[in-house]
Computed example of a mutant assay.
Amino acid sequence: MNPSPSARAGRTFFIADLHLTDERPAATGRFFRFLQDEVAGADALYILGDLFEAWIGDDHDERVAGDTAERLAALTKAGTRVYFMHGNRDFLLAERYAARARMALLPDPTRIDLYGVPTLLMHGDTLCTDDTAYQNFRHRARHPLTRALLHRLPRAWRQRLAREARAGSEAAKVRKAAEIMDVNVDEVVRVLREQQARRLIHGHTHRPAQHVHHVDGRACERWVMPDWYTRWGYVVCDATGCTLRMDAL
């Protein structure tokens, strides 16, 4: 039996790396059931990047984009706040689509008070400082001039560039050592100290787990969310703490 909306109040959900696309309807169906069965009635839903497999601009024409906006807007109208932080696949998502989905855009990183715990939210890619090739690419791609140029290109050109970027990303992963694509622990400690946070929640690495880092003598939690390729999952928090939950699609 699913919990009633009143039972879900006082809970906040976190997801990342769903990589939704019309080509993967199982993940889309699982996401919509998750919104209805798990999130409805909760305090908030935080989407920490890569909601979509690719995002060429707010004129993105995949059916999943429209259906997702409709579901998220309904969730917000029913009283659950929805927040979105850009990932490396959907950093071109802008105010027009956010307004359509009735979700608030967040900078990366964002620090919140989560039931009394200072909690840092990130997509997670900036923590992977050992992957210098990716960090250089990220810096160029996120530059305001690059983004402005991309927004001005015809949609067909942007679609082609997105396909080429996806193919290049997959090829690059094969050539890299696995540990290079994971977070740098020193960087994790640095941002926790800098942001004065006791908890960090992020995605990007597709390595779901709970970690503990010691920062200036204090134990700090780090929660890593799963992707939604063959499994699906999320982090849910309340006043007693956080839990990582996963299941098969």
Score class of each variant (00 low, 15 high):
residue 20 L to E: 00
residue 179 E to Q: 12
residue 49 G to C: 04
residue 160 R to G: 09
residue 57 G to K: 01
residue 144 P to D: 05
residue 57 G to P: 08
residue 236 V to G: 01
residue 23 E to F: 06
residue 101 A to T: 07
residue 109 P to F: 06
residue 208 P to S: 08
residue 197 A to G: 09
residue 148 A to D: 12
residue 54 A to I: 13
residue 200 L to P: 04
residue 187 E to H: 08
residue 14 F to V: 15
residue 165 A to I: 11
residue 149 L to I: 14
residue 66 G to W: 00
residue 20 L to R: 04
residue 239 A to W: 12
residue 166 R to K: 07
residue 1 M to A: 11
residue 174 V to W: 11
residue 71 R to S: 09
residue 215 V to L: 06
residue 53 E to T: 01
residue 78 A to Q: 12
residue 151 H to A: 15
residue 139 H to T: 13
residue 242 C to Y: 01
residue 65 A to W: 00
residue 24 R to T: 10
residue 101 A to L: 06
residue 197 A to D: 03
residue 6 S to A: 12
residue 121 L to Y: 02
residue 156 A to E: 15
residue 110 T to F: 01
residue 143 H to K: 05
residue 146 T to N: 11
residue 199 R to G: 00
residue 137 F to I: 00
residue 137 F to G: 07
residue 215 V to G: 03
residue 84 F to R: 05
residue 142 R to A: 12
residue 144 P to C: 07
residue 109 P to T: 08
residue 66 G to Q: 00
residue 57 G to E: 13
residue 243 T to A: 13
residue 109 P to D: 02
residue 241 G to P: 06
residue 100 R to E: 14
residue 10 G to A: 05
residue 112 I to V: 13
residue 21 T to N: 05
residue 114 L to D: 00
residue 163 R to T: 01
residue 36 Q to N: 15
residue 221 E to G: 05
